[in-house]
Design a protein around this nucleic acid. Structure first.
Length: 513
RNA sequence: GCGCCGUUCAUCUAGGGGUUAGGAUGCCACCCUUUCACGGUGGAAACACGGGUUCGAUUCCCGUACGGCGUACCA
C-alpha cells in the first residue's frame, strides 16, 4: 500500500543555485534513491519579472556536476510534463476559481496603493501585524464586501483582480513535520495570501500545492524558510479536497553565515573568501552579478557532495567519508537535525584534501599535463603521474599540485629569503662537491643514485647530511620546503640539477662575499 | 512588533534521566622525517541561563536570553 516515493526539487530560476539549494536537492535525491523512487526537478518561474536567462540551465548543469540527475525534469521530460510552471500556467486558475465558488477564496480588486494605505493605517493604529486578514478584508475592495453586481461588472470589464484565500478566523492548523514533529499554528496569525496574481499566474503557494498534487509528490523536503507558510499549504490541500494525497513535509535546517548573523547568502561568499555556488556564475544581462563556484575553486564534486551531505544530517556512526551510493544507503530523514548550521569552509577543504589523496595518480596526471600544455610544456603522462604522486600529499586542490610543480619545469628565479639567510660556507662546499659528482652521473638519474652520491659527498667532507639538505633544496627549488629532494633531482635530471646548483652557488658566493 | 523554529567544545556533530559527555574539522605539543606536508600519539576545548518534575537532570516540562526564518500580486 506504500506509494512510490516521489520528491521534487523546485528552484526558482532567478540566478545561480545557492549551495543551500544544492543541499536541498541532494537530500531530496538521496531520499528518492534510497526508497527507489523518483526525483524530479520542477522550475518555479511564476514570477516573470524575476526571470533570469541562463539560470535554469545553470541549475541543472550544477546539479549534474554534483552527480544529481533528475528522473523527470524540463530537460528530460516525464509523465507530468511540462516541468516549468510558466508552461503550466493554464492549469492553475481553475483551482483558484473552484475555491472561490466553494467559498474558501475570493476576488480582491485592491490596487497596490490601496494595499499600502491599509498597511500604513494599521501601522499608525499600532496593530500588531498589518495584514490582509479576516478582520481587515471587510474594509477592502473584494467580492466579500462589494455588491454582487459590482463584482460581476468588474470581472466582466476586465478589472484587474487577484484571488485570495479566505483564511478562517479561528482555527488551528497542524502538521506533522518529519524533522520537527507537530507544528501548530493558529489561523488568526495567518493572512489572506494571494493565490492567483492579476497577471493570471499563480503564486508560489498555489502552484506548489497544485503541482505537488498533480505530480503525485509524496514528500516535500525543502528549506526551513518555508515552514511559516506550510500551514497555508496544508489548508490549501484541505480546501482543494486533496488531504488524503497531501505529501509529508520535512523542513531542513538552514545554512547560516560562519561569522554570526543571518543565513548564508549570495554575497557572503566572495566577502568571506569561499564560494557559495557550485559553479561560477555570471548573469548574461547583468555582468555585475557574478560569483565564483566550487568547481572552479578546485573542489571535486564527490568531496563537495560528501561535505554537503553531512551538513544537518549524520549517519549516526562515526563514518564521514561517503560515496553517493553509500549516502543513499545511509540516508534517512529521521537523522536530519533541527538546528541551523554555521557554514565552515575548513571542513570542505579537509574533504577535498582527502578525496585528492584518494584519486589515482594517472587520473590526476591528465589534469597536470593539460595545465602544462597551456604553458607549452611537454610532459609525458608517466612523468606527470610521478610528479602527482610526489606532490599530492601536500595539496588540497589540484591547483596546488601545479603551483608546487612549477619548479620542476622552471629554475628558481628567486630564493626563499629566510632559508637563503641561513646559507653557509659549509653549504657551498658540499654543494660544490655534489655538483661535481652529479654531472658525471647519467642524466636520467634515480633518486637512489642521487642520494648515494650525496651521502658520499657528505661523508668525504665529514658533514651531516641534514646540513646540506636545506641548501640543496634552496638551490634546486628556491623554496624552504617541499617533497622528497632526491625524487626532485631524479625528475629534474642530473644535468638540470647540476646547473641549478651552480647558479645558486654563484648567487650565494656574492652574498657571502 | 507579531508568528513559527531552534540552542552539546571555535565549527560540524554523537548521546541521552545516573557517561571520565564520544567523534570529526581547526588549533597546540610530541613522534616520524633532510624540510614542509602526510601519518601516528597526546592535549586544550561544550551540554545558554533560571525555575520546576525527580533520589538524581545536559537529557523531561515551563519561562528567560540568544539566534534563525517568516511576516509581498518573491520564491
Amino acid at each position: 500500500m506504500e506509494k512510490t516515493v516521489r520528491v521534487r526539487f523546485a528552484p526558482s530560476p532567478t540566478g545561480a543555485l545557492h549551495i543551500g539549494g544544492v543541499r536541498t536537492a541532494l537530500f531530496n535525491y538521496l531520499f528518492a534513491k534510497k526508497h527507489k523512487g523518483q526525483f524530479l526537478i520542477r522550475i518555479e518561474d511564476t514570477d516573470q519579472t524575476r526571470f533570469v536567462p541562463g539560470a535554469e540551465a545553470y541549475i541543472i548543469k550544477a546539479l549534474e556536476w554534483c552527480g544529481i540527475v533528475a528522473d523527470e525534469s524540463p530537460l528530460v521530460g516525464g509523465p507530468c510534463a511540462p516541468y516549468r510552471q510558466s508552461e503550466r500556467k493554464p492549469m492553475y486558475a481553475q483551482y483558484a476559481y473552484r475555491m472561490v465558488e466553494e467559498g474558501t477564496a475570493y476576488y480582491a480588486f485592491d490596487t497596490e496603493q490601496e494595499l499600502d494605505e491599509m498597511r500604513e493605517k494599521l501601522k499608525a493604529a499600532r496593530v500588531a501585524s498589518p495584514q490582509y486578514n479576516a478582520i481587515t478584508r471587510m474594509q477592502m475592495k473584494n467580492s466579500l464586501t462589494l455588491p454582487e453586481e459590482e463584482v460581476k461588472a468588474r470581472l466582466a470589464s476586465g478589472d484587474p483582480y487577484v484571488i485570495r484565500i479566505k483564511m478562517p478566523r479561528k482555527e488551528e492548523v497542524r502538521l506533522n513535520d518529519l524533522v520537527r514533529g507537530w507544528v501548530v499554528v493558529h489561523t488568526s496569525t495567518l493572512d489572506d495570501k494571494v493565490l492567483l496574481k492579476s497577471d493570471g499566474m499563480p503564486t508560489y503557494h498555489l502552484a506548489n500545492v497544485v503541482d505537488d498534487y498533480l505530480m503525485k509528490i509524496t514528500h516535500v523536503i525543502r528549506g526551513e524558510e518555508w515552514l511559516p507558510s506550510a500551514p497555508l499549504h496544508v489548508l490549501l490541500y484541505k480546501y482543494l479536497g486533496w488531504e488524503a494525497q497531501m505529501p509529508q513535509f520535512a523542513h531542513l535546517p538552514l545554512l547560516l553565515r560562519p561569522d554570526g548573523n543571518g543565513k548564508l547568502s549570495k554575497r557572503d561568499g566572495d566577502r568571506l573568501g569561499f564560494p557559495v555556488f557550485p559553479m561560477d556564475w555570471q548573469d548574461p544581462f547583468n555582468p555585475e552579478d557574478k560569483a565564483s563556484g566550487y568547481r572552479e575553486a578546485g573542489y571535486f564534486p564527490d568531496a563537495f557532495i560528501n561535505f554537503l551531505a553531512l551538513l544537518g544530517w549524520n549517519p549516526g556512526t562515526t563514518q564521514e567519508i561517503f560515496t553517493m551510493e553509500e549516502l543513499t544507503q545511509a540516508f534517512s530523514i529521521e537523522r536530519i537535525n533541527k538546528a541551523g548550521i554555521k557554514f565552515d569552509i575548513d571542513k570542505a577543504k579537509w574533504y577535498n584534501q582527502h578525496y585528492l589523496r584518494q584519486k589515482p595518480d594517472n587520473e590526476l596526471a591528465i589534469y597536470l599535463t593539460n595545465e602544462l600544455e597551456k604553458q607549452q610544456i611537454n610532459c609525458s603522462l608517466e612523468k606527470a603521474a610521478k610528479i602527482v604522486s610526489l606532490m599530492k600529499e601536500r595539496a588540497i586542490f589540484l591547483a596546488d599540485i601545479w603551483s608546487e610543480a612549477q619548479y620542476l619545469f622552471f629554475a628558481p628565479s628567486s630564493y626563499d629569503e629566510k632559508a637563503a639567510s641561513k646559507w653557509s660556507n659549509e653549504a657551498s662546499i658540499v654543494l660544490e662537491d655534489y655538483a661535481q659528482q652529479l654531472i658525471r652521473a647519467t642524466d636520467s638519474i634515480s633518486s637512489e643514485q642521487a642520494k648515494q652520491i650525496l651521502h658520499d659527498c657528505t661523508e668525504k667532507l665529514q658533514m651531516k647530511i641534514g646540513k646540506a639538505m636545506p641548501a640543496l633544496r634552496l638551490a634546486l627549488t628556491g623554496h624552504a620546503a617541499g617533497p622528497d629532494l632526491m625524487e626532485i633531482i631524479s625528475l629534474l635530471g642530473a644535468k638540470e640539477a647540476t646547473s641549478r646548483i651552480k647558479t645558486a652557488l654563484a648567487n650565494f658566493e656574492k652574498m657571502l662575499g
